[in-house]
Amino acid sequence: MNSIFEYFADIFHTVKSLLTGMKVTGRYFFSPWEIVTQQYPENRKTLKMYDRFKGEVIMPHNDHNEHRCTGCGICETACPNGTIEIIQAKIDMPDGKKKRIIDRHIYHLGMCTFCGLCIKACPSDALAWGQEFEHAVFDRSKLNKTLNQPGSSIIKDIVE
C-alpha cells in the first residue's frame, strides 16, 4: 500500500515541479517587455558606452592639433605585449642642442589586451581611453594606428 502511495506521490511531485518550470517560461513568453536584447545596429545612435569604457588607446589632441606626448617611451616599456612602438625624431633646438621628440606613436590595436598599464605609466597624461568599439576591419594592417596626428606638436607647457 505504501509503495502505491509513493508511486502516485512521485507522479504528483514530478508534475508539480514540471509545471513550476513551465510557469517561468510561460510567464516570460507573455511578458515581451522583459526582453533584454539590444538591437545593435539600430540602437547605434542611442547606444552610449560608459565613461570609463576601454575601447582603444587614444592620444587626445587639443584644438591646435597639439598633444601631450613627449616621446619618452615609458608606455612602450610598460606595455606587456609590445603593443606600443615609439619612433623618435631628432630636431635642432634654437639653442643649438639636439632634442628628441616624438615622430610617430604607433599603436597596434590587434595586440592590445587593454590592461591600461601604458595609460597609468604615462608621466604626462598623454594617453587616454577612447570610446570607440567597432574595431572590426577586413585588413589586419588597418589595426596598426599612429596615435599622434600628422603635423601635430607637443603642448608647450609640458616639461620633460
Partner: peptide, 21 residues
C-alpha cells in the same frame, strides 16, 4: 564592472598595492 573598470570580462583592474582606478 564596465562602469567602474571599463571592461566586462578581463579587467586587469587590480594592481599590486591597490586598484588601477
Amino acid at each position: 564592472f564596465e562602469e567602474s573598470f571599463g571592461s566586462r570580462l578581463l579587467h586587469s583592474s587590480y594592481t599590486p598595492g591597490g586598484l588601477m582606478m
